[in-house]
């Protein structure tokens, strides 16, 4: 029997002590093996380093001065040994069968490079009043499992993008001929709390979307940005 491929699970974290343990536990609870867990501390100033260094040496730890989540994801990928890479934001959770469901797709479709699934927004108790019925989303990077070779082809995440690094990567992947498959099930819980990066990102977000559009136009024309 052929050995199952290793999935490197990369968790970038900045001041995420409140939720990090649960995130790591949701990776450890995966029914898929083998996995490796890489936690990249993006210059936290709270109890995050203590949690990462916690008992059992269960994670591969990496630290860096604060450079933002895309740089942290890239740093994690740089030391990843897996044939596949998956991301989990430190405030999100995976369903126990997430990796198994997605890896089954890679086994079924030899040419598949990127597997996505849905995520469900999940409001902490204090913010239940913000909850909307339309809680099924797909934009989170926590849904992705990527064949490592696709990263080598498309390139790393753009570290100058603070919010749209993942969208940008998917656009570049599409332009490189990569067609992701999306499972219809929500296999990620995206925790909505007081400090999600998606809050207050209005003008920065708009600016990054313009950059993505300009870059895409340039790629269509074959001109450098």
């Amino acid at each position: 029997m052929e050995a199952r491929p290793l999935v490197s699970c990369v968790v970038p974290v900045f001041n995420g002590a409140l939720y990090l343990t649960e995130a790591i536990e949701s990776i450890e609870a995966q029914t898929w093996r083998p996995i490796e867990i890489i936690v990249v501390d993006d210059g936290s100033t709270d109890g995050t380093p203590g949690i990462i260094a916690g008992p059992g040496g269960r994670v591969r730890a990496l630290g860096q001065p604060n450079r933002g989540p895309s740089a942290a994801r890239n740093a994690g990928m740089a030391i990843a040994s897996g044939e596949f890479v998956a991301f989990l934001d430190a405030d999100d959770l995976w369903a126990p069968d997430k990796l198994a469901r997605q890896m089954a797709r890679f086994e079924a479709l030899a040419g598949l490079d990127v597997s996505l699934c849905h995520a469900r927004n999940w409001w902490i108790d204090e913010l239940k009043h913000e909850a909307t019925s339309d809680s099924d989303i797909m934009g989170s990077v926590s849904v992705a499992v990527i064949r490592r070779e696709a990263v080598d082809r498309v390139g790393l995440l753009d570290e100058t993008l603070r919010h749209k690094d993942w969208t940008d990567w998917l656009l570049r992947a599409a332009d490189a001929g990569i067609v992701p498959e999306t499972l219809p099930e929500a296999l990620v819980l995206r925790r909505i709390h007081h400090h999600n990066m998606s809050r207050n990102r209005g003008s920065e977000d708009a600016e990054e979307q313009i950059r993505l559009a300009r870059a895409r136009l340039a790629r269509r024309r074959g001109t450098p940005t």
């Binding site: 934009g139 969208t167 999600n196 809050r199």
Partner: peptide
């Protein structure tokens, strides 16, 4: 792709 990732409301 852009519609997948709408910003959340401003911080409460």
């Amino acid at each position: 792709l852009l519609a997948l990732d709408p910003p959340l409301p401003a911080a409460p």
